[in-house]
């Protein structure tokens, strides 16, 4: 590394006079007082130049919408008519009063839980399996990642055809083993399971790889000493591996919370009714679908914005709860 550094340094030194805005070659021999000052200014201010383009763009496309949504949410604001009167928190009250908000919030959380919990458990097991000296390691890792490249829209179309209420493959298979048809599109819980299965299919392999990376960072000595103490592999997994990868679990759970609570494409394309609000009784309508319903089907951007803000608050609450919960669970495991 050091030799490398040296050549590099020499290189740069030779080049430096050609730097734009650095004055002609003749300046060089003189004790570079203003050059020093320039260099200091360079070091003090140029970091801002580095982050400025990002922040300028980010303010326009990230922060401005955030504030503007709040602005829209306190007005009567129809899709076609545009801005109307200031109505204070009226839109929020209407949204909160709507039975669909509660129902779709519960749906969203339910789908999220049914997808996340098994997904993380399976991913953990899968990572445990991959954390062996396998033949064709890379190939296995790539194979489990395959579903990740299939878009949610495609996933929803494919799984939608599998989960037909009457003539879908899943029900026909269930019939073979003597189970009656399950109403995947009308039974609330069943529809959540069907949608969660799409999410799980796409994300389990991805999360397994993340866990795998964390597992490989666990010092091997821990396992060896545990093995000497007579702990079996399962026991090692539960009391060493899982607590050791706690930070990674927090990361995975929080990212899946943010993604999971925004779920839209899967339930929308799963819906067979023409209104596409998530079933006749909104059995599987989610909060994001409610945002779409308010804004683009009922053409009321005010209520859509209020719903979006409420969704944001829910996500924040969940992120905090997750953090606390995982910390708690993790520390319990650590004490063992």
């Amino acid at each position: 590394m050091t030799t490398h550094l040296h050549t590099r340094g020499g290189d740069i030194d030779e080049m430096s006079p050609l730097r734009p805005g650095h004055g002609p070659r003749a300046v060089r021999p003189e004790p570079p007082q203003w050059r020093q000052r320039l260099s200091r200014a360079d070091h003090r201010y140029s970091p801002y130049l580095y982050v400025a383009p990002f922040f300028v763009l980010f303010l326009v496309i990230g922060m401005f919408p955030l504030g503007y949504t709040a602005w829209v949410s306190v007005h009567d604001w129809s899709l076609l008519g545009g801005k109307g009167d200031f109505v204070g928190l009226e839109n929020y009250r209407e949204v909160l009063d709507s039975p669909y908000f509660t129902k779709q919030l519960v749906n969203t959380i339910s789908i999220f839980l049914i997808s996340s919990v098994p997904q993380i458990l399976i991913a953990l097991v899968l990572a445990g399996l991959l954390d062996n000296q396998l033949r064709g390691r890379t190939l296995w890792r790539m194979s489990i990642l395959l579903p990740f490249v299939v878009s949610p829209v495609a996933v929803a179309i494919i799984f939608g055809s599998l989960f037909g209420d009457r003539y879908g493959l899943v029900n026909q298979a269930l019939n073979v083993v003597g189970i009656d048809n399950i109403a995947w599109h009308t039974n609330r819980l069943a529809s959540h399971v069907a949608i969660a299965s799409m999410v799980n299919w796409r994300w389990t392999g991805y999360n397994a790889l993340i866990f795998l990376a964390a597992m490989q960072a666990v010092p091997r000595e821990l396992y060896e000493s545990a093995a000497i103490d007579g702990a079996g592999r399962l026991r090692q997994f539960v009391s060493i591996t899982v607590p050791m990868i706690r930070p990674t679990m927090i990361f995975v759970i929080i990212t899946s919370t943010i993604g999971g609570l925004q779920i839209f494409a899967e339930p929308r394309l799963f819906d067979d009714t023409t209104a596409r609000n998530g079933g006749s009784d909104r059995q599987f309508g989610t909060i994001t679908m409610l945002v779409y319903d308010f804004g683009w089907q009922l053409r009321d951007l005010g209520r859509a914005s209020a719903t979006a803000w409420l969704l944001f608050l829910v996500i924040c609450v969940f992120a905090v709860v997750n953090l606390v919960l995982v910390r708690r669970i993790g520390s319990l495991g650590g004490e063992r």
Binding site: G160, S161, G164, R166, Y167, G168, H185, D272, T274, S280
Partner: peptide, 17 residues
């Protein structure tokens, strides 16, 4: 008891629905 225009609605044409 099938939603009109849905997948099952389409399928029942083939299944004497």
């Amino acid at each position: 008891k099938i939603a009109q225009w849905g997948d099952d609605w389409t399928a029942q044409f083939q299944n004497d629905g």
